[in-house]
Design a binder for these strands. Structure first.
Length: 774
DNA sequence: GGATCTCATGTTTTT
DNA sequence: CATGAGATCC
């Protein structure tokens, strides 16, 4: 009868069947935490006879929520009615939809402001306060305000300890007024407002305390103060809180998450039981050992001794590529190899630190024709054309949303410039109505007094008519129909076609709009209000189309919670995987390490790590320093030699470098071996980066660390090409050849040379050591 | 008032 | 390098 419990190991079963009360599950990667959560919910419903509506399960991503819903459905053969499950933000939004009337200044039809809307509001606030947006960059101010909200600090409580804080405090207050005036809440408000509501209205708090008698939290280490505060209030009377987390996978500190909430939990719920899940069902022992060795270097952590029944396993491969393009090519080459060996594209994932890295990878995948999907890069709902269309819907939905009105009133351009917009705002102020409603007044009341000249009036009137028409059909039409009407009346397609850079761009952007239209059309029976909420709170495209069997390209952050048989971690370089902005702070550095740990532990069978010798910075090429984390890899579990050896090899090969061969990638990962005659290990990372002869050290070979003294005054390499088309040159390996083309790239020179026997090679001048034959 | 160009500037991760 | 904002030009 309890067959679903048999699928669990002892610790898991203990967690699932523990009696209600506070429980902390410390779950290592791959230890089945989702399984524990879902089974716990099933257990509560089936065994303890808890009505589903007494259960609240919160996650951090929509993906996790969906996954959980899916699994529960499988076990229970149907979705339990009334079970509340979703992200913190979505849950709070739902709650506020019911209760916002009890919040001063807000109504239930509030809109959710995303990051971009926030910036607009902050710019407005800066203007209102006569502050210079150069001195107080909106995005920085936004994070200041956001941090305060995450800590549940109101503008009044904000401590102005210095000038910038004093400005932030004032700005925060003004910003908040603007939000309220727009009946808008930003992401942080969703959480904070619920807490505020609970604190002001004990009766409402009590209502939800009674409703949510069992609360489950996924990824507990990612909670911030506001979220923790929320949980604490809800469980104050009945502390049935089932929290699952792993401090080693805390990667969201930058957004206010604080894994120390795990400690607070132990203090705040002294009776809490604690269960450790260390058995891993995902990776080979080799991968786990590597992961543990990496994470071990972080201080102040509780070690989890991960183990699996999958003993042994393939060693982790580490390779250095010449640059990011070659790195990408080697990865796709290895992918092709693996495809031949029976893996499918869907088994593989390439993970990286920053979205910018996806470019080279994507190009390589396109070139090789391997099906791939790019997860979340330019987030669908943040694309300009999508935001535009959504802004239209928002204006139709909510007159108070002046931010959205500003966005669309002249997009596409229709002769309503900034001056006219100012007049409109002023005029609406006089009428004491929202600008959007003032426009409608212009349409329905022909005799109304207004300050506009003929041209402006016509333009405004025309727009007002459209808005009026949309408003009229709003409640009868489906979201899809409304959207069609808007697209048609605004001539949106024309707008996209005329404003796009080129045909491809126009095509893509229109395709995006149509994608949104499809989403809207599919959301049959969903109210406009709900539709807008979903659209703002759902970031991933995964709702749109679940791409079958494609390799995934994704950031390490996006990879959390996922697993793949084959994982590639690209760009393991100082400044990228420990990200440059985290190098001088111990805590951030520890978080970068956890990010690496998360990446490693996504892999089931095989892990490939790569870094490049040089990488395109913002401008030219920079020499990359292998990630400091790589030094911590256990040598006996890694194949590919030390960082020094790899670099030595890169340099040896670089003298005969070539990009063109597409087969180079596939063999290089599997056949290249660590140099048989390893150079005397040297500690410095810049060691031996000097070409022999008398060539000047190219700038890109220098790092911030000072080299030998005499190099400091070596002149920079010539900016102009040293090699000219038609010139005869000699290469150590390829022999004599003719220069076809030469161009400078950054501080180096890229020479294409035709060799009679070897064909055309593209060579990096600083390495190729070409002898000019005249 | 609007569109185009240039210059400057600023670069992580996302609910 | 890419995007965005500002100035300039139409």
């Amino acid at each position: 009868m309890q067959d679903y419990l048999n699928e669990l190991n002892e610790q898991q079963r203990t967690a699932v069947t523990t009696e209600p009360g506070p429980l902390l599950v410390l779950a290592g990667p791959g230890s089945g935490k989702t399984r524990v959560l879902t089974h716990r919910i099933v257990y509560l419903i089936r065994e303890l006879r808890v009505p589903p509506w007494h259960i609240l399960a919160v996650t951090f991503t929509n993906k996790a929520a969906k996954e959980m819903a899916h699994r529960i459905e499988n076990v229970l053969e149907g979705q339990p009615r009334g079970l509340m499950m979703g992200t913190f933000h979505a849950t709070c939004a739902r709650l506020l939809r019911m209760e916002a009337d009890n919040l001063e200044g807000y109504g239930r039809d509030f809109v959710i402001f995303d990051t971009e809307d926030q910036l607009e509001a902050i710019k407005q606030a800066l203007k209102d306060l006569n502050l210079d947006d150069k001195k107080f960059p909106p995005y920085k101010m936004r994070s200041g305000i956001g941090n305060a909200k995450n800590e549940l600090i109101t503008p009044e409580q904000y401590i102005a300890s210095n000038y910038i804080a004093e400005v932030t405090k004032r700005l925060y207050a003004r910003y908040q007024q603007i939000l309220v005036a727009n009946n808008g809440m930003d992401f942080d408000d969703l959480l904070m407002n619920v807490v505020t509501l609970f604190d002001r209205r004990p009766d409402i708090l009590q209502k939800y305390q009674e409703r949510f008698q069992h609360i489950l939290v996924d990824e507990f280490q990612d909670t911030n103060t506001a979220q923790y505060g929320l949980l604490k209030r809800l469980t104050a009377v009945t502390p049935n809180i089932f929290a699952v987390g792993d401090a080693d996978q805390s990667i969201y500190m930058w957004r206010g998450a604080d894994y120390r909430n795990l400690n607070r939990f132990r203090e705040d719920y002294p009776d809490a039981r604690q269960i450790l899940l260390e058995q891993n069902y995902r990776s080979t022992q080799v991968i786990l050992d590597v992961a543990m060795e990496i994470i071990r270097h972080n201080r102040n952590r509780v070690h989890k001794q991960l183990f699996t029944e999958r003993e042994g396993g393939e060693k982790v491969s580490v390779r250095e590529a010449y640059d990011e393009n070659e790195e990408a090519e080697r990865i796709t080459g290895a992918v092709q190899d693996l495809l031949l060996r029976g893996y499918s594209p869907g088994d593989m994932a390439v993970m990286y630190r920053t979205n910018a890295q996806s470019r080279a990878l994507e190009e390589a995948f396109v070139r090789t024709g391997i099906p791939y999907r790019l997860v979340g890069a330019t987030q669908f709902y943040r694309r300009r054309e999508i935001k535009d269309v959504i802004a239209y819907l928002r204006v139709v939905h909510n007159s108070a949303d002046a931010i959205s009105l500003n966005r669309v009133i002249n997009t596409p351009t229709r002769g309503i410039g900034s001056k006219t917009q100012e007049q409109l705002t002023a005029w609406a102020g006089q009428l004491a109505v929202q600008p959007a409603d003032a426009l409608i007044r212009l349409v329905i009341d022909p005799d109304v007094q207004h300050p506009f000249n003929g041209r402006a009036y016509n333009a405004l009137h025309l727009f007002g008519q459209m808005l009026h028409a949309w408003r009229t059909v709003r409640d009868e039409a489906t979201v899809g129909e409304l959207l069609d009407l808007i697209l048609e009346q605004t001539g949106f397609r024309d707008y996209i076609e005329t404003s796009a850079k080129d045909d491809d761009d126009a095509h893509d952007r229109w395709a995006n709009v149509m994608e949104l239209r499809n989403v809207a059309a599919a959301a049959d029976g969903v109210s406009l209000s709900d539709f807008l909420e979903q659209v703002t709170l759902v970031s991933e495209v995964d709702d749109l189309e679940e791409e079958p069997n494609r390799a995934s390209l994704l950031t390490l952050h996006a990879a959390k919670g996922l697993e793949f048989p084959i994982v590639f971690l690209a760009g393991l370089e100082d400044g990228i995987l420990p990200h440059s902005r985290s190098l001088d702070d111990v805590e951030s550095l520890a978080e970068e390490r956890r990010l690496f740990y998360v990446g490693i532990t996504r892999a089931m069978d095989r892990l490939y790590i790569s870094h490049a010798f040089r990488r395109l910075g913002y401008g030219g090429w920079d020499v990359a320093v292998p990630s400091r984390f790589l030094q911590d890899l256990p040598a006996d579990l890694v194949e590919g030699g030390s960082a020094q050896q790899r670099r030595q090899q890169t340099k040896t090969k670089a003298s005969s470098w070539e990009w063109s061969s597409s087969s180079a990638g596939s063999s290089s990962w599997s056949t290249s071996r660590p140099s048989p005659t390893p150079a005397t290990p040297r500690r410095t990372t810049t060691a031996a980066a000097k070409p022999e002869k008398a060539l000047p050290t190219p700038n890109y070979l220098r790092t911030g660390i000072a080299d030998d003294d005499h190099e400091a005054d070596t002149p920079a390499p010539p900016k102009t090409a040293r090699y000219k088309t038609g010139q005869k040159v000699r290469h150590a390996k390829f022999g004599a050849g003719t220069v076809i083309e030469s161009k400078t790239t950054g501080n180096d020179e890229e020479v294409s040379v035709a060799f009679p026997e070897y064909g055309i090679k593209r060579l990096a001048a600083s390495f190729a050591n070409l002898e000019i034959l005249d």
